[in-house]
Amino acid sequence: MTNIGFGIDVGGSGIKGARVNLDTGEFIDDRIKIPTPQPATPGAVAATVEEIVRLADWDGPVGITLPSVIRNQRALTAANIDPSWVDTDVNSLFHETLGHRRISVLNDADAAGLAEVSFGNPEARSGSVILLTFGTGIGSAFLMDGELFPNTELGHLLVDGVEAEHLASSAVKEREDLRYGQWARERVSPVLREFERLFWPSLFIVGGGISRKAHKWVPKLECSTRVVPAELRNRAGIVGAAMAVDRDLTP
């Protein structure tokens, strides 16, 4: 019998959810996506999450990712969502709209890391690996022999006086109309070299929607550490969220 879960990935531009086969990491059916409400306040996002669950006709446990540091089920930061998220009790918030079911809330890049270890690139399971998700911002997950160190925020590290995600996110590439090679060499490479200088990883894994075009930019990166594309790409957040609630992970 197939083990099925449900995950929702809250991003700066879209909120996405799907049923997940927890044995394979594949979606059971099509992903549901609704634009992130603006402003992305806790109440507005919770209402959108409720709508996705309703459209999916799902009545089981729900895992939810947020672009926030999550500790003891409280949002401590708010990256690319409304500042009113800071210090929100996220578990209580989503129980108010989703009712009495099991809910896990975790950082979006951490969810991607969990998914990549289980269902993605096998190299994520050994050594000191930094997974980076490029989207509206830059998310990060630290993995040591496949184990997660949660709530790293490398996207906010200063590189040449600028936050890394303000320099090198895929949103910056689109906004400034940068070519893939230019973005890789002039924006992403300096960020990776700074991460190398500070953390000395054995491997970078790059994910997010732009990893679908990895062949256009990963070979153009200029850093010492090997860089490989994530295999789950932008499925990873949803899959990791479904895994988290299935495993009763509540950071």
Rank of each mutant, 00 (worst) to 15 (best):
D160V: 11
F134E: 05
G139T: 08
T136I: 13
H156G: 07
K173T: 00
G146S: 05
T133L: 07
G135W: 13
D160R: 14
F142Y: 14
H156P: 00
L132D: 02
L178M: 12
S128M: 14
I130N: 04
E165C: 06
E176W: 03
E163Y: 10
E147S: 07
D145W: 11
G127I: 13
A141C: 09
L154T: 04
H156N: 14
E174H: 13
A141W: 01
G155A: 13
L132E: 02
P122H: 08
E165Q: 14
L157I: 14
A141F: 01
V129C: 08
G135Q: 11
E147R: 10
F142Q: 03
G181C: 01
L167E: 04
V129E: 06
S169L: 13
R179S: 12
S169P: 13
A124N: 06
S169Y: 09
E163P: 10
E163F: 09
E174S: 12
D160H: 13
S126T: 15
F142K: 03
E176K: 15
Y180N: 02
E123I: 09
S128D: 09
L157R: 07
F149N: 06
K173W: 12
F149L: 09
L178K: 04
P122F: 08
H166T: 05
F134R: 05
G155V: 12
E153T: 05
G155P: 09
T136L: 15
G146I: 10
K173A: 07
M144G: 07
R185W: 01
D177N: 15
T136W: 13
L143G: 02
V159F: 10
L157T: 13
A184M: 02
T136N: 13
E153F: 01
P150N: 02
L167A: 12
H166D: 13
M144V: 10
R185T: 02
F142E: 04
H166Y: 14
F134G: 12
T133W: 04
V162T: 14
L148D: 02
L167D: 04
E123L: 15
D177V: 00
Q182P: 01
A141M: 06
A164R: 02
T152V: 06
L178V: 01
E163V: 11
E165K: 03
A184V: 00
G146W: 07
F149C: 04
V172Y: 07
L154V: 05
R179T: 02
E174R: 15
H166P: 00
M144Y: 10
L154I: 11
E165A: 04
L154M: 11
V162F: 08
E123W: 06
G161H: 06
L167S: 09
G139H: 10
E123F: 08
A171H: 12
H166N: 14
L158P: 00
W183T: 00
K173Q: 15
T133K: 03
N151E: 10
G137A: 14
T136H: 11
G146A: 04
L148Q: 02
I138A: 10
A184D: 00
S169R: 12
T152H: 03
E176V: 00
V159S: 09
E174W: 11
S170Y: 03
L132S: 08
